[in-house]
Simulated scan of single mutants.
Amino acid sequence: MDRFYWGVDLGGTKIECAVMSYLDDQCVLRKRIATEGNKGYEHVLHRIRLLIEQCAEEVGVYPDCVGFGTPGTLDPQTGLMKNCNSTSLNGKPLDKDLESILQTKVKLANDANCFALAEARLGIVPQVKPDAEVVFGIIMGTGVGSGLVVNGQLINGRHGIAGEWGHNVLEINGAPCYCGKSGCLETVISGKGLEAYYQSLANHAATLPEIVELAESGESYAQHTLTRLIEKFGLAVAQIINVIDPDVIVVGGGVGNIDALYEYGPKAIQRHLFNPVLDTQIVKPALGDSAGVFGAAMLVK
C-alpha cells in the first residue's frame, strides 16, 4: 500500500499539491506553482504534470491516484467540465486528459465539495460534533459554493451538482446572475452581491471589509447591508436545514468571516424553520486555505 495520498487544488491563479500520510493524515509536502491559465488548457495540463513530478521527486514516489479540486463540475452525463470560472476548462474531458498526461488515475470534485469534505473529516466538525452524520459546507466569498457530506462521503448527485446552493433563486426579479437566472442566492449574499447592494444605497463603492468596518462605526448604509445579509442568510440556510437536517453547517469564505452571522444568524434561521428548535451548529472552518487541497486528497483515501 502507498504511504501517501495526493491532492491538487486547481485554481485560477495557482495550482497547489498536498501529499498526505496514510498513517496519521499529516501533510508531508505542500507545494504550489502559478497556473498560467491565460496560456490555454493544454498549458495548464502541463503545469499540473510539472507540479506532480516535482512533488514525486521530493517524496520519492509517484502517485497511484490523485484527487483534484476543480473550479467547476465534471458532468457525469457528458463527461465534460461545466460551470468553471476558469473558462478554458469548460467543455473539456478533464479527468481523461489528466489521466493521459499524468499516467495515473484521478478523481475530481468541485472545490466547494473538497472544502466540505476536508472540514467534515479533518477540520472543525470532528472538534464540535465528532459523531456528525450530515455536514453541509458553504463557501461565501466572491461567489457562493457548497457541498454535502454524509457519513464522511461526498454526495455528488446525478448531474454532479448535489449540494449546490448558490444558484437557487432567493429574490424574484433580483439582479441578473451569470448562470442566466436572476436573483440567485449568489447575487444576494456573496461578497460581490453585498458590495453591489451597499453601493446602491450609498452611491459610492466599498469593499466588504470596509463595509464591515463602517457598520461597526455606526454608518447606516453599511449596517443596513449587514442586516439584510443576516436576514437573507437566515432564509436561505433554513431551506437547507428543512430539507437535509444537517448536524453541522460550516461557513467559509470572506463573508463567512463576518462575526454577526454567528451572533444573529441563528435567530434569523429559526424564524423560517419547520423544526421548533435550531439544533444544527453553524460554525467557522478550522483548516483555512488548506481545506481545498486536503479535501482533494481525501477524494482518493
Rank of each mutant, 00 (worst) to 15 (best):
Asn156Gln: 15
Asn257Leu: 13
Gly234His: 07
Glu219Arg: 05
Leu148Glu: 04
Ala238Glu: 08
Ile241Leu: 06
Glu119Asn: 04
Val128Gly: 02
Ile139Leu: 07
Leu154Ile: 10
Tyr198Trp: 02
Arg121Cys: 10
Thr187Ala: 11
Gln223Trp: 01
Leu185Asp: 01
Leu226Phe: 03
Thr187Met: 11
Val243Gly: 09
Ala162Gln: 12
Pro209Glu: 10
Pro176Phe: 11
Leu122Thr: 04
Ile172His: 13
Val248Met: 08
Gly157Val: 08
Leu261Arg: 07
Gly218Arg: 05
Ile189Phe: 09
Cys177His: 04
Val248Pro: 04
Gly191Trp: 07
Asn156Met: 12
Leu261Gln: 06
Asn156Val: 12
Tyr197Arg: 10
Glu164Ala: 12
Cys179Ser: 11
Ala215Met: 04
Glu210Ile: 06
Lys129Asn: 10
Gly180Cys: 03
Ile161Gly: 05
Cys179Arg: 12
Gln153Met: 13
Ser190Ala: 07
Thr142Ser: 07
Ala236Ser: 15
Pro209Arg: 10
Ser217His: 15
Ile161Tyr: 09
Gly141Asp: 12
Gln153Pro: 08
Ala120Leu: 01
Leu170Gly: 01
Ala175Asn: 10
Thr225Tyr: 00
Thr207Glu: 14
Leu229His: 02
Arg121Lys: 15
Gly157Gln: 14
Ala120Val: 02
Ile240Phe: 07
Ala222Gly: 00
Glu231Ala: 13
Ala118Trp: 03
Ala132Pro: 00
Asp259Val: 14
Ile249Leu: 09
Val255Lys: 06
Ala162Tyr: 09
Glu213Gly: 13
Thr187Asp: 04
Leu214Cys: 09
Gln239Met: 13
Val188Gly: 01
Val255Phe: 06
Asp247Ser: 10
Gly218Trp: 06
His204Gln: 15
Glu119Lys: 03
Asp245Ile: 14
